[in-house]
Structures are given as C-alpha cells and as structure tokens.
C-alpha cells in the first residue's frame, strides 16, 4: 500500500448499514438494522453472536461480496456503495483477504498455486518474486514442506493454513475470516488463532474473525457482539493468556 499506515489508521467504516433480503416481495426481511462500526489497522477483532444474528451477512457486506440495501461502507476511506461490480471486485482483490470456514481451496491446484491465485487473477502469470512471496507465506504458516501438495493431500488444519497464506498474498489491509476454525479440533483452532494474531502484528493487517467459540474470541483484542442484526456490545480488552500454539 502506498499511503503510510499507522496502527490507528481507519481501515473500514460502516455507516447506518442495512441489509434486507427479498426486497419488493411479501417476505422482505431486514437482517441488519443500521449498523455502525469502525475497524482500525491494529484491530484484531472477533465478531460473535448467535446463529441467524447476521454475522455472515455483515461479513459478506464488508468483504464487498454483497451490496447493502442502505448505508455506506468506506474501505480505506473510499465509499463503495456506488461502485460497479468490476471496481468492487478490483478493490476487494487488492485490499481484502478472505478465509472461509471450509478452506475453499481449488482442488486442481497445488498449495503454492492456491496461494498465488489472488495474484494471478489480478496480475496474470506470476513473476519470480510473486512465487518467492507465496513460498515465504507458506513457510510462515508452517507449510514450507507442502508447497507442491494438492489440497486433497493436506489435513484440515493444513488446508486452512494454505487458505490463510492465500488471503495474505495480496498484502491485504483487512483479513476477514468466517468461522475459520469451525471444522478444526481445538488445538489446531488455537494455532490458527495464534497465526491470526501474528499476522495482525507482523503484517499490520486488521483482522476480523467470526467465531462461535468464546475461548477463541477471548484471545482477540476486541469483541463485537451481534444479536438480531444489531451490535449489542463492542468491547476492547487485553487478550487472555494466549492459548498454546500446537
């Protein structure tokens, strides 16, 4: 990123964000009722809340995968609501990294190629320094030995770490993770969270993680609780004693 970023730089600001499904039909339902939120560069935040509270909807909106019914999302200060699909896709590709619950790696590609994918989609054939970066990221998540394996030959935790390395490939300013540890055992889950914390610290990248697990959300610096489409609490706290990384 060209502009100088300090820990307090605002990465994301939501203003009066609303989202309804089935607009114009008898079953129109509003899922988010005017959400305001600011994420700063140094934030390592957990988004918690019961099922159906709108966590995934919110994550899709601020990941620019979906468009709000009302309100505005400022990403690095840029309003995004009026952008067309191509502009949103380009901004998403260059500033946001995604980690999904089910790793979502492309099965036909090796770990290294999966990590290179975001770069290839926006810049075409990877250059040697792209490959070097991808290898370094894989090494960083502890997978230096597995670069040439296909996802089917990796464990669930390893696949998720490939997905995290992939999310970091574009040097994003914001990392969004939707239940990234949902199908991992607790030890592996803790190591993934430890990795997020390290990313937050070393890469200067804001991290927002949707999780169900209070033990994991406790390791974050900030906990945002969403209930029935409203933010009911937003607390900053110093993390508990970090869980031991596997």
């Amino acid at each position: 990123m060209s502009e100088p970023a300090t820990p307090d730089t605002e990465v994301l600001r939501l203003v009066g964000l609303r989202k309804s499904y089935g607009v114009g039909t008898p079953v129109e339902t509003e899922v988010l009722h005017g959400t305001d939120l600011i994420l700063a560069q140094r934030d390592f935040a957990a988004l918690i809340g019961p099922s159906g509270s709108g966590k995934s909807t919110l994550l899709n909106l601020l990941g620019l995968l979906d468009t709000p019914t009302d309100g505005e999302i400022y990403l690095l200060g840029q309003p995004t609501r009026e952008m067309d699909d191509d502009a949103r896709t380009a901004l998403r590709g260059s500033t946001i990294g995604f980690v999904f619950q089910f790793h979502h790696l492309l099965p036909a590609f090796t770990a290294l190629e999966n990590v290179l994918l975001p770069r290839m989609l926006t810049h075409g054939r990877p250059r040697p320094d792209d490959i070097a970066l991808a290898s370094r990221l894989l090494a960083d998540v502890g997978l230096a030995e597995f670069t040439d394996r296909k996802p089917s030959n990796l464990s669930g935790g390893q696949q998720q770490r490939v997905a995290i390395a992939r999310a970091l490939m574009t040097r994003p300013r914001l990392l969004l993770a939707d239940e990234p540890t949902g199908n991992l055992d607790t030890v592996t889950a803790a190591s993934v969270f430890a990795l997020f914390r390290r990313i937050n610290r070393d890469y200067g990248c804001a991290v927002l993680v949707v999780t169900h697990d209070p033990r994991l959300s406790g390791t974050c610096d900030r906990t945002i609780e969403l209930v029935d489409g409203r933010i009911v609490s937003d607390t900053r706290h110093s993390p508990d004693a970090p869980l031991a990384a596997a």
Partner: peptide, 12 residues
C-alpha cells in the same frame, strides 16, 4: 470454485 475465484478478485 467460481465463487472463490470471484472472492479472490477475479472479475466476471
């Protein structure tokens, strides 16, 4: 997979 490609910044 198409969804992933789109989420990773692949235009339509």
């Amino acid at each position: 997979e198409i969804g992933i490609l789109r989420a990773m910044g692949g235009p339509r």
